[in-house]
């Protein structure tokens, strides 16, 4: 199989995934108590006329495939309808909150990579040493520590006990330090474990031993052989991290009362603001799917074996 064929296959899978996600998302409307009409009306006073107007506007009297198609074509052209609570187009509500979440997520990813990769390499280089054991145990605790729990402990330590930061307040960048740390902890643990395992695995390979025997400088061995090969398994978890980041952001934003997309989602769920929820779920799912696709494509670029059809991800 050549590159184009493999890439086309992946793209096909992505389309199927996106369609599945959109059907799931659209079906949310039917889940709401009182049915779609009640959900779309919200707490507005309803006369038979307004009800009829709503039914016509959202094609509620049409059969499901037609209704779904109308909604999907609208969504594809950026029209998710109006938020019931905010009485504004859904996209503009999301646009207002987007910067908070992207800042939080970007900050957290930066922290994750800056801490995770060096720590993982350090642990892998000196296997079973005190440092390795310490790092490995720390990752175990970090993985078992729920993000909202970390958020709370950080808030207490730095906000109440030490009084270094205001508990809730302005939207300066320093405000993101604690939330990003809370979000990054679990992900960092995953990156550390993955990097450590990769470093251990690669370190024992024949080509590394051979490179050492040829007398290549250590830096060269690490740069050209070890890191490049170790990058693959680390890349694999990127999709996992994207999903974790999104879900984690919901908890962390809620814990810190940050006005981002995560707390917006929870608010929308509690108010049964279905159009807003649909757009957020579709957006979140699309981000995860896109990251997974990028990971697959990056795999093909980095690893010639994958390009030539030997699958390493599908059977994992």
């Amino acid at each position: 199989m050549d590159f184009a064929k493999v890439a086309a296959k992946r793209l096909g899978a992505v389309v199927v995934l996106l369609l599945t996600l959109s059907v799931l998302t659209y079906a949310l409307l039917a889940l709401a108590p009182g049915g779609p009409e009640e959900a779309l009306l919200g707490d507005r006073a309803s006369t038979p006329e307004t009800r009829a107007a709503i039914r016509a506007l959202y094609h509620l009297d049409e059969p499901f495939p037609v209704r779904y198609w109308e909604w999907l074509t609208g969504a594809l052209s950026g029209d998710f309808g109006s938020s019931i609570y905010f009485r504004q187009p859904v996209l503009s509500v999301i646009g207002d909150r987007l910067p908070v979440t992207t800042t939080l997520a970007g900050f957290a990813i930066l922290l994750t990579l800056a801490v995770g990769i060096p720590a993982g390499l350090a642990a892998g280089l000196r296997r079973s040493g005190v440092l390795d054991q310490g790092i490995t145990f720390s990752t175990l605790v970090a993985l078992a520590f729920p993000p909202f729990g970390i958020a709370l402990v950080l808030l207490y330590t730095f906000g109440v006990a030490l009084q270094w930061v205001p508990i809730y307040g302005s939207d300066q960048i320093s405000n993101y330090v604690l939330p990003a740390t809370a979000l990054a902890m679990g992900q960092t643990a995953i990156v550390i474990r993955q990097t450590r395992a990769a470093a251990l695995d690669v370190g024992g390979q024949d080509y590394v031993t051979f490179a050492k025997a040829r007398g290549l400088p250590r830096l060269r061995i690490w740069g050209s052989y070890s890191l490049r090969n170790a990058a693959l398994p680390v890349l694999t978890v990127a999709g996992l991290l994207a999903a974790g980041n999104l879900t984690g952001a919901v908890f962390v934003e809620q814990a810190f009362s940050l006005p981002g997309l995560g707390s917006l989602l929870i608010q929308a769920v509690n108010q049964k603001d279905i159009p807003l929820v649909q757009a957020l779920v579709l957006l979140g799912g699309a981000v995860v799917i896109a990251v997974n696709l990028l990971v697959d494509l990056a795999y093909m670029v980095v690893d010639p074996r994958v390009r030539h059809g030997a699958s390493t991800r599908a059977e994992a």
Binding site: A243, L246, T247, L265, V269, N270, G285
Partner: peptide, 14 residues
């Protein structure tokens, strides 16, 4: 391939 916990929060919540 989908963010499962996120979908679960939404479905159970709604």
């Amino acid at each position: 391939a989908l963010p499962g916990l996120l979908i679960l929060i939404v479905v159970v919540g709604i």
